[in-house]
Amino acid sequence: MKWGNFLATAFIILIIILLQWPKMKQKPKKEKSAFIVLLLIGLFLSMFDLPYIGGPAKWIEYVFNPFGEILEK
């Protein structure tokens, strides 16, 4: 876990909320919750050392590996 990344992301998220929230006051609850949930996902991901943990690119490479091998032949 890298605190620097986490804190920086948290700070950016704070700015985003402060700037965007006033505009969203009138919006339905659904919109507000989607906004918050997506931000929380971003905050959650920022807690990991992303380049070095297996992520989407790894999974996809694993799934499509057989095709890639055909190409290498």
Partner: peptide
């Protein structure tokens, strides 16, 4: 905005180096 943050995070996720990225670009993408 939230998706912008996610895009930044996805750009790092599981790609430790440019070599790994090129490998991904050829074999999987």
């Amino acid at each position: 905005w939230p998706i912008g943050i996610l895009i930044v995070e996805f750009s790092f996720w599981a790609v430790p180096s440019s070599m790994a990225f090129i490998h991904y670009e050829i074999t999987a993408f």
